[in-house]
């Protein structure tokens, strides 16, 4: 839950919207302005915050926020 809150803060900052509340089921369709251009800013912001690096394969197969959280979790607990 703590991780989800931290990622939520990043979402709010990237999309400039203080009302965003992500859930594992959230997809790009649910957030106004989440397109391919803002997606890259989101990914870089997450990588910088958690000091991690996603693989190409992960980046191309994320379907929702749940996939993203799982991947972050697996990297920061290693």
């Amino acid at each position: 839950m703590e991780l989800q809150n931290k990622v939520n803060q990043i979402f709010r900052k990237v999309f400039d919207d203080g009302d965003i509340n992500i859930t594992p089921e959230t997809t790009a369709n649910d957030i106004d302005g989440w397109d391919s251009l803002s997606h890259v800013n989101l990914i870089v912001a997450i990588e910088t915050k958690f000091k991690i690096r996603f693989s190409q394969k992960e980046l191309l197969t994320f379907k929702n926020v749940g996939d993203l959280l799982k991947s972050i979790n697996s990297k920061i607990t290693v």
Binding site: S36, V40, N41, V44, L60
Partner: peptide
Amino acid sequence: IFKPLQMQWRDRRNWGT
């Protein structure tokens, strides 16, 4: 083509895109 390249060059932000 676009997505893999964009992600590969993501550190360059808008210029990469």
